[in-house]
Nucleic acid binder design. Structure first.
Lengths: 232, 232
DNA sequence: CGATCATAGTGTAGAAAATACACTAAGTCG
DNA sequence: CGACTTAGTGTATTTTCTACACTATGATCG
């Protein structure tokens, strides 16, 4: 006896949040997908997401869904776009507020076979034929990530806390899909003075060990306030 | 006998679209506001907007609202952000998908005192203490406009079809809030080859008449496809 | 009808930023 | 200890950005 308790004078759409979660697995950019076990689109991959509670801000809803799927708390999260085509969900009018997130896949390693949900990290190039309009959502997120990474240092969110300059460069090359000159890249990145050189080097590599750096978030905030910009 | 016909198993928020409509009035950047005649926020200025119909795409809802308020059809319209704080409307949960638009105020001159609605073009600098969270929405739109105008030639949407380079420069100065060097500006703008020089000049000015130009939208589309970028 | 006024329109030189490019250094492994 | 692998470094050239001031043209007014 819990059906149809909530009645309104005019019809209302459902509102969901969907999350495009990016992670970097070696040199592959991956996205977190969920295998749907019921119709519509049973058996197809979909973006994690769910309904927004009535007393819950949109961003909190996105965070909640993410924690349920990935267990990850500390991450970069930003609103992407709102998709509202009347027929994007065959069950009825569902408006989706999409977010995209960047997680340090390397730190929180609980990758596949989570929480009883069939969640998996999939190479973005393989992630096609998704449920609903999620192909479009993913493409929008990728475009945004590519555009944003050029003028804001968000790439660090995908790397472990300590990383080498080569890792960082390779990340940019992966996201932007084009090779970058090593010397020019290093000069430019270091000129931003957002990186702190650590007294440590890489361990257990079969060649000269590279210096480790960390991203100096505090300094970044200062520079943003001072009106700096950060093109790569 | 039309109350509460629409019943659901779980509660649902209302969804509205709100529009931030910018127009250029001489050297002032203005925004279209509506004086609210009922509570909440009776007597305060608000952004034009309204409920999304169940079978209507979000952008169509925004366009519909805009036509109702301004009579303007031909305009630049883009989704801005979705505002979903649970308490942004004291009457209940209302999620607002905000759009921003640029209109050629100079062409469609039916400015104030429209359609029985108390709509008015207000200098953006004067537009404060708006209803709901519309101060935030307006600020977000302004930030977006300022950022976007630097790398996409959307400024033209605010000017009449035929305009002088001085008008264009003054528009950029108004939006960006800083003076620009005349010679450098002209060189850069003309180098993009997005402007077609017209065989006409300005009329009825008490000094040397300036050459008129028009924006070549077709050429713009070609260049976008070719991966050009357009920083100013 | 000539002087005055207001804005249109134009070029260059110096500084800064972007690009292209190849070798030596250091650590591991067999 | 030689071979292998990646780390780390500098310079010259080209391109882009910036700063800057005078002449041209048309309208108006006395």
């Amino acid at each position: 006896m819990k059906k149809n308790k909530y009645c309104y004078e005019y019809p209302r759409p459902s509102v969901v949040v969907d999350c495009v979660v990016f992670g970097l697995d070696d040199d592959l950019l991956k996205v977190l997908l969920i295998r749907r076990d019921r119709d519509p689109f049973a058996g197809r991959w979909a973006l994690p997401g769910g309904f927004v509670d009535m007393d819950e801000p949109l961003e909190s809803a996105a965070l909640r869904e993410l924690k349920e799927e990935t267990g990850v708390g500390d991450l970069f999260l930003e609103q992407l776009y709102t998709f509202g085509d009347p027929h994007r969900d065959p069950r009825g009018r569902v408006i989706s507020v999409a977010y995209y997130a960047l997680v340090k896949l390397s730190d929180h390693k609980p990758v596949a076979a989570d929480d009883a949900r069939d969640a998996e990290w999939v190479d973005v190039k393989q992630a096609t034929k998704l449920a609903f309009d999620h192909d479009t959502v993913l493409k929008t997120a990728l475009d945004r990530l590519r555009a944003k990474v050029r003028y804001q240092p968000i790439g660090f969110e995908l790397l472990p806390a300590k990383f080498t300059l080569t890792q960082l460069q390779s990340l940019y090359e992966t996201i932007l899909g084009q090779p970058i000159d090593k010397r020019n890249f290093r000069r430019k990145i270091l000129a931003m003075s957002l990186l702190t050189e650590l007294p440590e080097t890489q361990q257990q590599v079969a060649h000269r060990a590279a210096r480790l750096y960390r991203f100096d978030r505090q300094r970044y905030r200062q520079l943003v306030k001072a009106g700096f910009n950060f093109e790569v």
